[in-house]
């Protein structure tokens, strides 16, 4: 399989303002690639270049080998895009809008119908009367109603309720099962964790790392809060990858990194009344990169972040 997306030293600036700098990314066909970064990091700029809305200042972006700028209309036959906050025409009903977009994409005018039913979208209501969550449903239907081999999604779940987020993850999984490629920009780590094969982390317009979700999480501390029936024996949690942050009788706060199986086995032997395991959210993960200044060990930042998450 080749690459669905290639960014070759892609740089885009807005006058003196930084957009993205020297991005080097390859997204393989058939994979779900998460593009993580806080607001203003350059995710949307990258996607706008990919979609041919703006031109690179230098470098190149290609989709299935076609130049994202000069071949835009041709490559749009192979791409379905969902922006983070599309300005739908409020006077149209969801059905009218979806029918219109289906026509423009060369799909059957009713291509949206089954998916609209699946996400429980009322197609007869003018879009201006829809809640933000329902407008996001319109976006989901619009992007998934076709059969384009590449889906480019810019923070698609920001206003979806948990049920719809789950539906979204199912749709992404189905797309992957069909061999389609998904480029998903997000700052929602659980969403990325559940759906992506690999992720790229962007910070201040520069790519910091490309890794797998597993590798990203295994390098970070998770917080484990226990409420026990009886206090554990001293040194009970002495494991190389575990630190006891606080232990006050029956309440124990641990930090664990990497393989959690041994810790879970030890916990299982205790009389556990309650347990909370907190995955660091993306903000905490970013702290690793943001706080990794000379002289400041990144683990310190991780621990601090995880401790904050536990609170």
């Amino acid at each position: 399989m080749g690459n669905a997306i290639e960014l070759d030293r892609l740089t885009r600036s807005y006058g003196h303002r930084r957009g993205v700098v020297d991005l080097e990314v390859e997204v393989r066909e058939g994979e779900v690639f998460g593009f993580l970064g806080p607001n203003g990091a350059g995710k949307t700029t990258t996607i706008r270049v990919l979609m041919g809305f703006i031109r690179p200042t230098s470098g190149r972006a290609t989709i299935f080998g076609l130049d994202a700028w000069s071949d835009a209309p041709r490559l749009h036959r192979q791409v379905a895009w969902l922006g983070s906050d599309p300005g739908y025409l409020g006077e149209l009903t969801a059905a009218e809008l979806l029918r219109h977009l289906a026509r423009l994409r060369g799909l059957a005018p009713s291509a949206w119908r089954a998916l609209a039913e699946r996400v429980d979208l009322d197609p007869g209501i003018p879009i201006r009367k829809l809640s933000r969550g329902n407008r996001n449903k319109v976006g989901l239907v619009a992007v998934f109603m076709g059969h384009e081999p590449l889906l480019v999604l810019d923070e698609p779940t920001s206003a979806l309720d948990p049920l719809m987020q789950r539906e979204f993850l199912r749709l992404v999984a189905e797309a992957r099962a069909e061999g389609r490629t998904v480029f998903l920009s997000s700052h929602n780590l659980p969403e990325v964790e559940r759906s992506c094969d690999r992720i790229g982390i962007i910070r201040d317009g520069r790519l910091v790392e490309i890794t797998t979700v597993g590798a990203l999480l295994s390098g970070h501390w998770r917080s484990v809060n226990l409420v026990l029936g009886t206090p554990p024996a001293p040194g009970y949690f002495d494991l190389p990858n575990v630190r006891v942050v606080a232990s006050s009788g029956q309440d124990v706060h641990l930090m664990v990194r990497g393989d959690v199986n041994e810790l879970l086995a030890r916990i299982a032997r205790l009389d556990v009344r309650d347990i909370t395991i907190t995955t660091p959210d993306v903000e905490d993960l970013f702290l690793r990169y943001y706080d990794a200044r000379p002289g400041v060990p990144s683990t310190t930042a991780d621990e601090g972040a995880a401790a904050r998450a536990a609170r």
């Binding site: 209309p73 041709r74 749009h76 599309p86 739908y88 025409l89 423009l104 994409r105």
Partner: peptide, 18 residues
């Protein structure tokens, strides 16, 4: 106006040339 409201990208994300 459509660029400002974020509409124009939708039709231009389809195979329709500018």
């Amino acid at each position: 106006a459509d660029l400002d409201r974020g509409w124009i990208e939708l039709p231009l994300s389809t195979p329709i040339p500018r």
